[in-house]
C-alpha cells in the first residue's frame, strides 16, 4: 500500500511537467486565442477582446500558465474546430469509444499471440518454429504501420472484394442507419448484440478485423521478443531444473514454474507498448478512416486546431502515465522483491 502511495506521489511532478510542456507547445503555435474560438472565421474583434479578458491572455506566459492550468482542471480546454466546434472535452467523450474498442481488441490480440508465440519460441529454441517466429517479430517492429494497413486493404478489399472491410468507419453506412440502432455502450460489438442484430454484429466485426490486426502487429512483435528472452532466462533457472528433477510433467513446469515468472518483465513491456498502441492508433485510424481520437487528432494537427492538439496530447499523456502506474502495481504484486525496497 505504501508502495502505491509513493508511486502516486511521484506522479505529481510528472503531471505538472506534462502540463508545462503542453502549455509550451501550444504557445509556440502563435496566437493563444485560437483554442478558445469556437468559430474562428466569424469572430469579431470585440469577441476576441472578451476571450482575452476572460482567459487573461494579455498576461505574461508564466502567469498565464496558472490561469490555463486552472481552466484545464475545471475541464475547460477550449473548442476544437475539427470536431465541428465542440468543446474539447465533449469531442473527447464523443470520439473515445471508437478508439477504446479498437485499442482494446488490438491489445487483446497482441497479448494472446505475443505471450503464446514467445513461449513456444523459447521452449523450442532454434527450431523452425522459433526461427520463423523471430523473423515475424523482427518484421513486426520494422514495417510502417500505415503501409501494413494499406497493403492489407489492397489485398482484402481490392483483390478479394470483401466489401465489408471497406475503410469507411465502424460499419457500412448505407446498409445500416444510425437511427435504427440504439447505442448503449458505444462499443459497437456489444451494442449490436444488445440490439439483437447479428447482421450488424458481423458487419462491425468485419470492419474491426483489418484495423485491429494492423494496430496489434507491432506490439505483438515487441511482446514476442521480450517473452522469448525472459522465458529463455527463466528456463535456465534452478527452480525450473528442480521442478523437472522432481518429475513434474513438462507442461506443468512450463506453465506454472517458467511462464509465470517470465511474465514479470513482460508485464512492464506490455505497459510500455500501450503507448505504442496509442501512437499506432493515430496512424491506423487515418488509414482506415476510423472515427476515433486518432483521426481527430491528425485532422487537428494538420489544420492547427490547437484546442484539439492540446486536448489529445494531455489525454494521452494522462492515460499513458496511469497505465504505467497500473503496470508498476501489477509488477509489485507479481514480484514480491519489488515491494521490499
Amino acid at each position: 500500500m505504501t508502495y502505491i502511495i509513493r508511486r502516486l506521489l511521484l506522479l505529481i511532478p510528472v503531471l505538472i511537467g506534462v502540463s508545462i510542456l503542453t502549455f509550451f507547445i501550444i504557445n509556440s503555435a502563435g496566437d493563444p486565442v485560437t483554442p478558445y474560438l469556437q468559430n474562428p472565421e466569424h469572430t469579431t474583434p470585440e469577441q476576441r477582446q472578451l476571450i482575452i479578458e476572460k482567459y487573461h491572455l494579455d498576461e505574461p506566459p508564466y502567469i498565464r500558465y496558472f490561469y490555463w492550468l486552472s481552466n484545464v482542471l475545471h475541464g475547460d480546454l477550449g473548442y476544437s474546430t475539427e470536431a465541428g466546434g465542440l468543446p474539447v472535452t465533449e469531442a473527447i467523450a464523443k470520439k473515445f469509444p471508437a478508439t477504446f474498442e479498437l485499442t482494446l481488441i488490438a491489445m487483446f490480440f497482441s497479448i494472446v499471440f505475443g505471450i503464446s508465440l514467445g513461449t513456444i519460441s523459447a521452449v523450442r529454441a532454434n527450431s523452425p518454429v522459433d526461427q520463423s517466429t523471430r523473423i515475424l517479430a523482427l518484421i513486426g517492429v520494422s514495417i510502417p504501420v500505415f503501409w501494413l494497413g494499406l497493403m492489407l486493404l489492397y489485398v482484402f478489399y481490392y483483390q478479394f472484394n470483401i466489401h465489408d472491410m471497406m475503410p469507411a468507419g465502424r460499419y457500412s453506412k448505407p446498409d445500416f442507419v444510425d437511427d435504427d440502432i440504439t447505442f448503449y455502450t458505444n462499443f459497437y460489438l456489444i451494442d449490436s448484440i444488445l440490439n439483437g442484430n447479428p447482421r450488424l454484429f458481423w458487419n462491425v466485426l468485419m470492419h474491426l478485423i483489418l484495423p485491429s490486426i494492423t494496430l496489434a502487429f507491432a506490439s505483438t512483435a515487441i511482446i514476442i521478443r521480450i517473452m522469448r528472452a525472459s522465458m529463455l532466462d527463466v528456463l535456465g533457472a534452478e527452480y525450473v531444473v528442480s521442478a523437472r528433477a522432481k518429475g513434474l510433467p513438462e507442461r506443468v513446469v512450463i506453465r506454472k514454474h517458467a511462464r509465470r515468472n517470465a511474465m514479470i518483465p513482460t508485464t512492464t513491456v506490455i505497459g510500455l507498448s500501450f503507448g505504442g498502441l496509442l501512437g499506432g492508433a493515430v496512424v491506423t485510424e487515418t488509414v482506415f478512416n476510423w472515427p476515433g481520437l486518432g483521426q481527430w487528432s491528425i485532422k487537428a494537427a494538420q489544420n492547427l486546431d490547437t484546442g484539439g492538439i492540446m486536448g489529445f496530447t494531455l489525454l494521452v499523456a494522462i492515460i499513458y502515465v496511469l497505465a504505467n502506474l497500473v503496470v508498476d502495481v501489477i509488477y509489485a504484486y507479481l514480484d514480491p522483491r519489488v515491494r521490499l525496497d
Binding site: V18, L21, G279, A300, F312, V316, Y320, N324
Partner: peptide, 21 residues
C-alpha cells in the same frame, strides 16, 4: 524529472504535436 516528462508521453504523439505547431 524533466527527462521523465518527455518519456511520459508516447513519442509518436509528442512528435506529432510539436511537428503540428
Amino acid at each position: 524529472r524533466i527527462t521523465d516528462v518527455f518519456l511520459s508521453i508516447p513519442f509518436l504523439i509528442l512528435v506529432i504535436a510539436i511537428a503540428a505547431v
